[in-house]
């Protein structure tokens, strides 16, 4: 494709650079201080690998690993479920003409966003108890799926508003079924929205403490509940070490997928 001048708006690259700098500087601090011998993050008192050792062999390491697995599992599933529902909802809102309750629907989809977290937490717990559902993986998953929906919905619908329906109409005029038109035309065009929505839901789910802490049951921990709970004794640097590891793994995965992808053919565009 021919390069347009518009691809390089003056100053935008610099702003992007600033953005990355702002995002990563605090993470560098975390990574550096995960090697700090003192358990404070403000005083440097020598290099140590003890916190990393603790992550792998400490007596609590199993608990932290379980929590990490739980967090990832909940985040992956909840954001997948919410993305699928958000996708269907976006098609319903933007591709199905008008119907009663359409603008109210937008309020309903946005509701999880605007209920303060503590209110969702207490209300969900009361409701789950009323249903006789005691805290478990399932209750956490349900709660996360609910509050992820708007985070998945908004990028998808923003994307869909940019896509006129003439491509799909053309396809159906050419005797494609609606399902084919959806799968072969709309879905590929929507991919950036879907990916964005999924990623946002994912990080929102991964970060949630308050709601999880109320609806989770006995013995079930996620990373935030393990980290936030430590108020009586204070946060220790093994958390820093674990966060740095998690970060390192994800950065390696991102780089790998980039390098592998570069070798492959550019089959799909997102």
């Amino acid at each position: 494709m021919r390069r347009s001048g518009l691809r390089d708006m003056p100053g935008f690259a610099q702003i992007f650079g600033l953005c990355v700098f702002l995002l990563y500087t605090p993470l560098i601090v975390i990574a550096v201080y995960s090697f700090n011998a003192s358990s404070s993050i403000t005083i440097w008192s020598g290099f140590t690998l003890d916190w990393y050792k603790e992550v792998f062999t400490g007596i609590d390491s199993q608990k932290y690993r379980d929590a990490a697995v739980n967090s990832l599992l909940v985040a992956v599933i909840a954001s997948a479920l919410s993305t699928v529902m958000a996708l269907a909802a976006a098609v319903g809102m933007l591709r199905a003409g008008s119907f009663r309750g359409r603008s109210i629907s937008f309020g309903l989809i946005g509701l999880p966003l605007l209920v303060p977290e503590i209110v969702t937490a207490v209300a969900s717990l009361i409701f789950f108890s009323f249903l006789g559902l005691s805290g478990s993986f399932l209750t956490v998953l349900i709660a996360h799926t609910v509050f992820c929906i708007p985070f998945a919905y908004l990028p998808i619908s923003a994307r869909m508003q940019d896509i006129p329906d003439l491509y799909e109409t053309a396809a159906t005029d050419l005797y494609a079924t609606k399902w084919q038109a959806f799968r072969l035309i709309l879905l590929p065009m929507l991919l950036p929205g879907i990916v964005s929505g999924y990623l946002l839901s994912f990080i929102v789910s991964l970060d949630d403490f308050l709601i999880t802490n109320f609806v989770k049951g006995n013995g079930f921990e996620t990373l935030p509940t393990v980290i936030f709970g430590a108020v009586r004794t204070g946060i220790r640097p093994n958390i820093m070490a674990m966060s740095s590891l998690l970060l390192l793994i994800s950065i390696v995965l991102v780089l790998l997928s980039y390098l592998i992808g570069r070798q492959g053919r550019e089959k799909f565009r997102i």
Binding site: V122, L125, I126, F128, S129, F130, S134, G135, N213, F214, K216, G217, N218, G219, F220, E221, T225, V226, F228, G229, V231
Partner: peptide, 24 residues
């Protein structure tokens, strides 16, 4: 021993009141 955690006395009270009493 299975363990669940809270981050303040009042948070514990609130969640017991909201339906967790009988689980611990």
């Amino acid at each position: 021993v299975t363990m669940d955690t809270y981050d303040s006395n009042e948070a514990m009270l609130a969640s017991l009141k909201a339906g967790k009493l009988g689980q611990y």
